[in-house]
């Protein structure tokens, strides 16, 4: 099942992010700075120099999504990229997300001598479990495991399962968080 631009827009709507002009400005600046350069200046959302740059964040999140999303989902890279267009919006959430990604990337380099996106899918999953993100309960202020669960794993799962395509995987085309109208509840199963 293909994740579409509509799914990404829906996922962003569910969490109050829109992407749009600010994202365009950010991407233009990133291009001017060179791909993968640090985007951690204050105007980009209050992130510290230590936090992950846009390239690392996007590559890491897409790599994790390939592990935590079911196999029958296609179009993951574009979906995650568009979702992050809105999520990296200068909010407190962006700062926490960058920090969590950075810690996960640090662990990957320390334990596997490679960035997250450079690992095989099996090693990526192993890394997530070794960090503790599988058994941790999400907590934006918690341990590394709890924050990776909150900002990385669950952000991605929230994006997927609050989108129409993610909902349809489970049998609900208007999942909670998605403003899919007030008609679908009246309809019987397809």
């Amino acid at each position: 099942m293909e994740l579409t631009r509509r799914d990404a827009v829906a996922a962003l709507a569910a969490v109050g992010a829109t992407g749009g002009v600010a994202v365009g400005v950010r991407r233009a600046r990133d291009r001017a700075d060179g791909a993968g350069s640090a985007a951690g200046d204050a105007s980009a959302g209050g992130s510290s120099d230590h936090d992950g740059d846009d390239g690392t964040v996007r590559a890491t999140m897409a790599a994790v999504a390939e592990v935590v999303y079911p196999e029958e989902v296609d179009g993951i890279d574009g979906f995650v990229d568009r979702f992050l267009d809105g999520r990296l919006d200068g909010s407190a959430h962006e700062s926490g997300l960058r920090e969590a990604v950075d810690e996960l990337a640090d662990a990957s380099r320390a334990w596997y001598d490679a960035p997250v996106e450079g690992l095989s899918p099996d090693d990526r999953e192993r890394l997530l479990r070794e960090v503790g993100a599988d058994t941790a309960e999400e907590d934006p202020d918690g341990t590394t495991a709890e924050r990776v669960r909150y900002y990385v794993v669950n952000d991605l799962l929230l994006a997927l399962y609050a989108s129409p395509t993610g909902g349809e995987l489970v049998g609900i085309e208007n999942p909670q968080g998605h403003p899919g109208g007030a008609e679908s509840y009246t309809r019987g199963p397809p």
Partner: peptide
């Protein structure tokens, strides 16, 4: 349960999570 809320708890992901959601919802 709401599938999206179910998805954010548990120690599974990927195909295992989807299987759990399909079994738990509907």
């Amino acid at each position: 349960p709401s599938p999206v809320e179910m998805a954010l708890s548990g120690d599974d992901w990927g195909d295992d999570l989807l299987e759990r959601l399909r079994a738990g919802y509907g």
